[in-house]
């Protein structure tokens, strides 16, 4: 599993809980080191053990943990770069949803060995969408739940999300757009100057 994904697990614990807790988790998961390197690759077994140890220490079910991590990726100040890269996908939430099909390719343009799950948006009506997430490891769908929730906030859109756990290797999320411009949302400055 790519270091960026493993590093996210570590940063999530460190930024939302504490460095000390991460060190405990690294030990409990028997990683054999304290830090994941973002630009190296790791045996998927390590990722699984790390996630298991985090869920255990935080007392959260795996899906809830993954969703929290998705939210963290978009909303924490230490992962601002991720939020910005996602915001390049579109000027409003619907355009952003449509850009998700390209997300794995976009990610590969920047980091060519980063393999993200295939995403496919099905448009059922102007306000109803289904996002299908196909990956070798299940769990990405739950992460996308968190990402979508946080991105909707970011755009100021009001949405209802429903997670449909795996069926035949595909996880899906039903998305219902209640109001595209419900709140102000956060700013997004193309030039990268301070937002908001």
């Amino acid at each position: 599993m790519h270091g960026l994904i493993n590093r996210t697990i570590q940063s999530f614990v460190r930024d939302t809980r504490s460095e000390a807790l991460w060190l405990e988790i690294a030990k409990a998961a028997e990683l054999g080191f304290d830090d994941f390197e973002a630009m190296l690759s790791y045996d998927p077994a390590l990722t699984k053990r790390a996630l298991g140890a985090v869920a255990c220490k935080l007392g959260l079910p795996q899906d809830a943990l993954l969703e929290d991590m998705g939210t963290y990726l978009v909303s924490h100040k230490n992962t601002e770069a991720v939020r910005r890269l996602l915001r390049f996908g579109g000027v409003d939430f619907v355009e952003f949803l449509h850009s998700l099909d390209d997300l794995p390719d976009r990610a590969r343009l920047a980091v060519d060995d980063l393999i993200l799950p295939q995403l496919e948006l099905r448009e059922r009506s102007a306000e109803r969408f289904t996002l299908q997430v196909s990956a070798r490891q299940r769990g990405f769908g739950a992460v996308m739940m968190g990402v979508l929730r946080a991105m909707a906030d970011d755009y100021g859109a009001l949405v209802l999300l429903e997670y449909v756990p795996e069926a035949e290797g595909v996880e899906s999320i039903d998305i219902q757009l209640i109001e595209a411009a419900f709140a102000e949302g956060r700013g997004f400055d193309l030039g990268g100057a301070r937002d908001e």
Binding site: F88, A110, G192
Partner: peptide, 14 residues
């Protein structure tokens, strides 16, 4: 613009 930012972030990690 997206690529420049994505590459900068990746370079920074490297």
């Amino acid at each position: 613009l997206y690529l420049v930012e994505a590459k900068s972030a990746a370079m920074e990690a490297s």
